[in-house]
Design a protein around this nucleic acid. Structure first.
Lengths: 193, 193
DNA sequence: TTCACCATGTAAGTTGTTACATGATTCC
DNA sequence: GGAATCATGTAACAACTTACATGGTGAA
């Protein structure tokens, strides 16, 4: 259901094609909720079937085609319903921490490599999110600018504040993972003695 | 592949039935990697087919039955291979932060409820993990005790240290989520003015 | 003309969710 | 005799992954 909500959230900014949505999912929103194109196109079709969006078919050139999706009233409602109803939390499934619990069974080099690549992974994530925060603050994020233009002035502060808040949470998480893995490297050194 | 590795990790402690494994997945390991029984039983069958484990059938009473699963050499290898090869990180899919980014579209009460239930959720998780850490330190965790009895003394410190390290990472994450959501509640108050 | 980008998908397989389904044993 | 717990699954569905498959447009 979250993919659907993420798509609705983007389409509420303005009508978009599957391709444009897909671009967003490989950039901005994609850093919060990832989805490949092979999931996006079928989902859009299903959403159109369910009446949440409508496809406006446009010709491009002589033979090219594209479908611009618009959110319907039912779609708006589906989105605000999702916003207003409590989130269902998934039970934990954390491969890195599962592996960490059995690190005594890994070969010497593998432990260090694991921790170092954990740091690298989360440092990349952190960078993405810090860039997003910077773009939000500077209001250079194209989607945010479009969204802000479409809503009354009174809501703009709130909108920016929550977006920033969301990405800060993700950045916090990344920092926490990095700190943890660094402590792991200290632990390895300690255990070696 | 992580479910398989988690099952192998447990079975390396000693032969167990599907039922016992399932119990572990609803307690200790289940707090790191969740799996329902409907996933465990078929996976055990597949693992037996793949030669990673063997089932020892035991009668209980007159008509009762149970299968004790043992790890084979191939299973041992599969586990250490998983330990030694780098983890593939899943791309981010975080419903709570996705929702947070669009909180300006939620009704007034829903924002607070969302943040409060986020805190509640992560406080529950934190409690589980802190209990696990306490059990690891006191060496009262039955699985850990069994494992420690089966390995040479020299490895015991390492084994305990990594287990503790893993759960501390999860606890850190929970704390980070709680701090974030609390900051969110502050933000709501600020925006109300 | 060729390359980057626009544009839209299908297909097969794996993993995970939710609900259903059944029966034995042990302890009180 | 009844409840908790032991014990093992199936079925239908939803979500996600990986790989494949195709063709148009626009600019250098």
């Amino acid at each position: 259901m979250s993919l659907r909500s993420a798509l609705l959230a983007l389409l509420r900014i303005g009508p978009m094609s599957g391709y444009e949505l897909q671009k967003q999912f490989s950039q901005s929103v994609g850093h919060v909720w990832h989805a490949p194109d092979s999931q996006i196109y079928p989902e859009l079709k299903k959403m159109a079937n369910d009446g949440l969006i409508t496809a406006e078919e446009q010709a491009r050139g002589s033979a090219g085609m594209r479908k611009l999706y618009h959110v319907t009233k039912a779609g708006q409602k589906a989105f605000t319903d999702w916003m207003d109803k409590p989130l269902k939390y998934q039970r934990t499934r954390d491969a890195a921490h599962l592996k960490a619990a059995y690190l005594e069974s890994a070969s010497d080099g593998a432990v260090r490599e694991f921790l170092e690549s954990h740091i690298e992974h989360w440092q990349n994530e952190l960078e993405c999110w810090e860039d997003e925060i910077a773009a939000i603050e500077a209001e250079t994020s194209p989607m945010l600018v479009r969204r802000l233009a479409a809503i009354p002035e009174s809501e703009r502060t709130t909108s920016v504040a929550y977006k920033r808040f969301a990405y800060e949470g993700l950045a916090d998480r990344a920092r926490s993972e990095i700190t943890w893995a660094r402590r792991g490297l200290d632990l390895v050194r300690e255990l070696e003695r």
